[in-house]
Design a protein around this nucleic acid. Sequence first.
DNA 1: AGGCTGGTTCGACGTGTGTCAACATGGACT
DNA 2: AGTCCATGTTGACACACGTCGAACCAGCCT
Lengths: 95, 95
Amino acid sequence: MSAAEAETAARMFKALGDPVRLRLFSAVASHEGGEACVCDISDVGVSQPTVSHHLKKLKEAGLLTSERRGTWVYYRVEPSVLAAMGQLLAIPAAA
Amino acid sequence: MSAAEAETAARMFKALGDPVRLRLFSAVASHEGGEACVCDISDVGVSQPTVSHHLKKLKEAGLLTSERRGTWVYYRVEPSVLAAMGQLLAIPAAA
DNA sequence: AGGCTGGTTCGACGTGTGTCAACATGGACT
DNA sequence: AGTCCATGTTGACACACGTCGAACCAGCCT
C-alpha cells in the first residue's frame, strides 16, 4: 500500500473515528430512503452547532452528500466510498 | 446504534485513521503467514520509536496482537474484529 | 560478564480536534 | 416587510495526537 493510497483511505477511516460522527453516519444510513434531515438525527448528546460541524467533516471526507430542500437539509450516504472501505477490510480478512 | 457501541467501534476506525497505522496494518495483514516482525514493516517513513508507538495503538484498539519470539516481536491481525468492522460498513451499503 | 541488536518507554514540543456560545444565513409564512 | 425557525459559520478554549531524541529493557553472541 502506497503512501498516497494510505493518505486517502485514512481520511475516510478518520472521519468515522469519532463516536458522534459514527452515530450520525449510522443514523443517516439506516434512515428510511437512505437520507435524513438534520432535525431527525441531531439527538446524539451534543449541541446543534457541533452536529453541523461533524456533518461537514463527513461531507469533506466524501462519505455524505448534502442537499437543501426548502427549509431542511438532507444528508445521504455515498455508497461507492463505503464499498471501497469494505473492500479494504475484506482483503486482509480473507488472507 | 447506541452510544456505547459507537464508542467501541469508533476506537477501531480511529486506529486506522492515520496513514502510518493504515500502512502498518496493511503490511502485517498482507505479510506471509499473516504475521510480521517489526523489522520487516518499519520502513514507512517515520522513526522506529514512532512505529512502535503506532503498533501499540493498534494493539490497544484490538486490531493486532503481539508475541515475542526470541529477539524479534511478531504482530498478527485479529480477524474477528476485522469482520465486525466490515459488517458495520456492509449493512448501510446494502440498504 | 560484557557488548550488540531489536523494541519499548519517557519526556517534550507543535499541531490537530472536539466542543461550545454567539452570531450570521436562508428560506417559509403572515 | 418582517418575523420565526432550521442550519451553518466563527472564534476561542482545552485536550488529545503524532513525532522525535534519549534513555531504557530483553535476548543473542563471543
